[in-house]
Write a protein that binds this DNA or RNA. Structure first.
Lengths: 192, 192
DNA sequence: AAAAAATGTGACAACAACGTATCATTTCAG
DNA sequence: CTGAAATGATACGTTGTTGTCACATTTTTT
């Protein structure tokens, strides 16, 4: 079945175009969730027809973006060495890494009406290790125990999105923004 | 000019319908920003034709929602007595009041691509008194001075939206949610 | 260079939403 | 009750997006 539709020999450009379309779509939809397929194709310097040859539906494209985001988020988290150091250090690393990625993970961190239960479950699965880190921090006395771990992760994600979205205006470096988020989330705004 | 189009005597129901349409549109667009005019009309138990008789355009309707939200937000803030008590007390009152309003102020607090400079300026104007409260808190030593007042307001708004949006799932009361936001924002997540 | 595969171009129908208009019906004010 | 005004129902043209297709062109592989 598949072998008849599949080309005899794979070509290099198709994979490159596939990645380009996926990346352009992620950026475009992060900028404006209502972008059309034509906008996405143009953002990738390709044609609408080619976009449809790679992703048969708009829905298929969105699912692909979700999957890509989840995969990269998972990689990012494991790269943050979630088992080295105390919870606050880990959170600092996570905030720094996610902040560098910019709005790439907006789809994961935000909650949109088109997110089905299927995606939400995988999302929670990816974020689960982070929740465990917070729980460990609470047990070890580094993090307040009167806030639920899930809420803490939600708050972190919320601050991340706000800061990243506000970044273009305020001319601050990535490191400064990440530090700002970390200080706000961990230390709060009260003096002392 | 106007008097010729205006009815000789005003009727009671038109104002009621106007308010109903505006409220339904606010709720509907808060739930799903891509809702159609038909959805809005149905949410108000009225017809699409009537909706167009009250708001000639979709754009006009959105502008009306923005204006309404700004007006009510301004009322809410003045009702919070921004000059009584220290900054943290005031912030607690503000979070409590805005939290009760639910997602009514999502349009104000969130930044969407369809927000023009005109609206953003009025928005900043409404939020300006709150920024002043934060500045005063920093001068009086209640709020950390190493965070810009604007960022603090942004962080507060961000947490508010996240919490209110997550409220339907977690069966917590309004007061509990408001307290949660306040504790997180002011105290941070670090122990001690 | 030649074959194969992918892309560009242009067109097409299907569809949803927008905005307008007409006319019968209902609702309010006097 | 009666006239005036607002609404419901319905239809219509317009527009933008979606998804598909055929055909010419370009790019890759051998």
């Amino acid at each position: 079945m598949r072998s008849s539709n599949q080309p005899a020999v794979p070509r290099i450009d198709v994979e490159r175009h596939h990645r380009a379309l996926l990346a352009a779509a992620a950026d475009e939809f992060a900028r404006n969730p209502d972008s059309s397929m034509a906008d996405v194709a143009q953002a990738a310097n390709l044609t609408r027809a080619t976009l449809y040859r790679h992703f048969s539906n708009r829905e298929t494209l969105l699912k692909a973006i979700q999957g890509e985001a989840l995969a990269r988020a998972s990689e990012t988290l494991t790269a943050c060495r979630l088992d080295e150091g105390d919870a606050l250090e880990i959170l600092r690393r996570v905030i720094g890494s996610l902040g560098k990625q910019g709005m790439r993970f907006r789809i994961i961190l935000m909650r949109a009406p088109d997110h089905d239960a299927r995606f939400l479950a995988r999302r929670d699965q990816v974020l689960a290790p982070l929740v465990e880190v917070v729980k460990r921090g609470q047990v070890e006395g580094d993090i307040r125990a009167d806030l639920s771990p899930e809420w803490i992760i939600t708050a972190m994600a919320s601050l991340l999105i706000s800061a990243v979205r506000a970044t273009p205006q305020t001319k601050h470096s990535e490191a400064e923004v990440s530090d700002l988020i970390y200080r706000t989330l961990v230390g709060g705004i009260a003096a002392n």
